[in-house]
């Protein structure tokens, strides 16, 4: 069926909650409000308030509670209204969710999904517009997923819910209304598998989440100039599918990495390092990164536009690596 990214997430959670009574959803406004972004529409009506748990605005408290519930055998899905608020739960995520298995010598597993929108929407200003995936990717013990399409969102969210580890699942507010194919019924995508979203020979563009859509648009424009870009979406950011990425780089020899986050110690720096380490000889020139500007997000629209990567900057970067 054709549906929105929002519907894909809703289906994934609904199907898993029907299948497994240990799965429950917890977060701010997930129940009677139907989700701050309406992702859990209809849930409290179907599953009741015991399994669709509205919380006070206390991210450390309810994220920690969910981790404790996972220790005792449940499979929580924590909805963060946005990942900006997840900063308040960083102690729970980093010091508890990610480490309890290791510290206990493997006695416990923490099967939990922590999901919600990351990155910028429009004019939400500095505290509501940031891409924090690099923070989470830095931490051993966590898995990090950032799907771009409804199909990937559904297949990866189901896999995340079934995974026995803590999974950080980063969505995007601007992706929620985007449409695409949603496979019905049992549909999973293995965690840790990248996908070539567009086949090309001249350059590899690596992009994930919202930036994938921009990269595909840029590739269409470049095709008019006879430049065939291969667009690769890692989909899972940790563990990273270096194999698929290297295969593409080996073919094209040129790489542009697109990310919405800040450049310094950003995820693109890690992607570039992985490519330099495994495929240095395949490269015909240095990797070029397109990133968000190294500033807190400004409110004013013209300044905000400057701070977020756009299609033309990707096109310019591709022409630069090809020159």
């Amino acid at each position: 069926m054709i549906g929105t990214y929002r519907e894909a997430l809703n289906q994934a959670m609904r199907e898993e909650m029907r299948r497994d009574s240990r799965v429950f959803l917890i977060g701010e406004e997930v129940g009677y409000y139907q989700g701050a972004f309406k992702v859990s529409k209809g849930f409290v009506e179907e599953f009741g308030p015991q399994r669709v748990v509205d919380t006070p605005i206390t991210e450390a408290g309810f994220t920690g509670l969910a981790i404790g519930a996972a220790m005792a055998g449940l499979r929580p899905i924590v909805e963060l209204m946005t990942f900006n608020f997840g900063i308040l739960a960083m102690d729970q995520i980093v010091n508890n969710a990610a480490k309890i298995r290791y510290m206990s010598g493997g006695q416990l597993a923490i099967p939990i999904v922590i999901r919600g929108p990351g990155s910028a929407a429009h004019q939400l200003a500095a505290q509501h517009s940031q891409s924090l995936e690099a923070w989470f990717c830095h931490v051993p013990g966590l898995k990090v997923i950032a799907p771009a399409t409804p199909r990937d969102a559904k297949g990866l969210l189901i896999s995340a819910i079934r995974d026995p580890n803590p999974v950080i699942f980063i969505e995007a507010q601007l992706l929620y209304p985007t449409k695409g194919d949603i496979p019905e019924g049992e549909w999973t995508i293995p965690i840790g598998q990248a996908e070539v979203k567009r086949v090309g020979r001249d350059v590899t563009i690596l992009a994930y989440s919202k930036m994938l859509l921009l990269a595909l648009e840029a590739a269409d424009v470049l095709a008019q100039d006879g430049i065939e870009a291969e667009v690769v979406d890692p989909r899972t950011l940790r563990p990273l599918d270096t194999k698929t990425i290297i295969a593409s780089v080996s073919k094209t020899g040129r790489v542009v990495i697109v990310e919405e986050g800040w450049p310094f110690a950003g995820l693109g720096a890690q992607l570039a390092e992985s490519i330099y380490t495994h495929a240095f000889d395949a490269l015909d020139g240095p990797i070029v990164r397109v990133t968000g500007a190294d500033v807190p997000m400004p409110y004013s629209r013209p300044l905000e536009d400057l701070a977020i990567p756009d299609r033309d900057r990707i096109i310019t970067a591709v022409k630069q690596v090809l020159s």
Partner: peptide, 30 residues
């Protein structure tokens, strides 16, 4: 940690394990 004895761990971030305790209790009630 001694999970077979339901000893669910010692934690070294002051205050950080109180939410975990409420989560264990949440699971019990659930």
């Amino acid at each position: 940690f001694d999970v077979p004895r339901n000893f669910m761990g010692g934690y070294a971030i002051v205050g950080g394990h109180l939410p975990l305790a409420t989560g264990l209790a949440f699971a019990v009630k659930y």
